[in-house]
Write a protein that binds this DNA or RNA. Structure first.
Lengths: 240, 240
DNA sequence: AGGGTTAGTTATCGTTTGATTAACAATGAA
DNA sequence: TTCATTGTTAATCAAACGATAACTAACCCT
């Protein structure tokens, strides 16, 4: 009965003569099409959130909505696929080796890591999808941030201990406060991405220089604080 | 607001049976009811985002959905009201004086400010609604963060200049890099709230102590960096 | 060439959702 | 008691939304 929208597509299909080149229907093999769908879904959900509608997504893909359901049994499955594609793909295992590679000075190591990290992570899609997932309560965020803490921040704290001439975490466990200090650096840097991709604020173009500076600022401050902490710890004035 | 939930369940119970005990229909005057609606809307939208449905909101309020439309002409108006209520209310004008009060040492001043700031801002409602609004592209975020930059970060940079014995911004304008350094502190601290309210991660309880430490760490690092920057700037390499 | 496999479309179903209306019930102050 | 105000019940509308089945056409193989 209501053929307003259907009319448009019908026009395209039926108005063209059968003799004319009337093949707007592009036929791709499964893998190809699936890839296109996932890529567009990433962009789409990053923009509007996971409440974005399958019809709108299909329109952006230039295909019909039911086609999506021939590739993914449900919208939820597609969303799940988007998570996988965005998150598991971008963490570079070699980073874990880089941050503990004591043959490189800590400052250079951290700077290099964060420059690479920023290259991989500071994208519209990654930042916003990660944020949407967090707000939705998907536990993939916690898993990811656990990696950040275990593979990045704790090694960093360990190194800071050494730099300040303090006992290793094996002898004296890291305190929440030390780990929090490392989060200051990580959060401060990541917040640049939030400003850009969530709040649409301008950020400097020379990110590498900014990162180098922030790493330096942090390391300077952290070593001072660690030493102060050490002095406090040496004086046995507090709790048992 | 004390027993709204009890009322809700009662409604549910009595709605099916009209013969049961008379539903405690609470009759409030306009201002009162409106306040209740807005408060619950804040909680509700903070939890599920602005796509949350008016029917669900009404259910949580223990009232019927059409009642909402006797207080707000449309859902969008209610959302707009939520923004106003959450954001304009919580910025304390006296902070602007605090951060430039040179009679207090900078470290203490910053610590005191951030402790108060955290008390006011680190709430489930504020953090999540601010994030949802940002993702949605509402420009209220940009306005707010402009205030942060102008009233907090720039004064902080000015002070850092003085501490490092550098010329005042009046003589030598602040660089993007210096402002970025201040964002490192602010972002690092705010990221604690994101970890808690967006990613549902545990954070330390003694936030005040953490903040004091992070302010100290930052100030130590920033002054070192500023001096290094000063040495670079002193070498006249290309400026006329 | 033709038959079968399968990518893609059309048409539609059943729900949900924002929004609105009309009629009625309860409350409280004059 | 009267009567304006607050709130409910019930119903409805139109649009939006996820999902499905049945049909159509492009491509491959022998």
């Amino acid at each position: 009965m209501p053929d307003t929208k259907a009319g448009k597509t019908n026009d395209l299909a039926t108005a063209t003569k059968k003799t004319a080149k009337k093949s707007p229907r592009k036929r791709l093999d499964r893998g190809e099409r699936e890839k296109l769908i996932v890529e567009e879904a990433i962009r789409f959900f990053a923009e509007v959130g996971f409440e974005g509608q399958t019809r709108e997504l299909a329109k952006r893909l230039g295909v019909t909505q039911p086609l999506l359901y021939r590739y993914f049994p449900s919208k939820e499955d597609l969303v799940e696929r988007v998570y996988q594609e965005v998150f598991v793909r971008r963490w570079q295992p070699h980073w874990e080796e880089l941050v503990v590679d004591t043959s490189i000075p800590l400052k250079e190591r951290l700077t290099r890591f964060y420059c690479e990290y920023v290259d991989a992570i500071f994208t519209y899609e990654w930042v916003r999808i990660f944020m949407f997932a967090g707000l939705k309560g998907v536990n993939i965020n916690r898993r990811y941030l656990t990696i950040i803490q275990d593979k990045l921040l704790i090694p960093l704290c360990t190194e800071l201990r050494a730099m300040a001439g303090l006992p290793s975490p094996d002898d004296l466990p890291l305190t929440a406060r030390e780990i929090e200090m490392a989060w200051l650096l990580h959060g401060g840097i990541y917040y640049i991405a939030i400003r850009k991709f969530v709040y649409s604020l301008p950020i400097p173009e020379d990110l590498d220089a900014i990162i180098a500076q922030e790493v330096e600022t942090f390391l300077n401050g952290a070593t001072s604080s660690m030493k102060a902490f050490y002095n406090n710890a040496k004086t046995p004035d507090k709790r048992k």
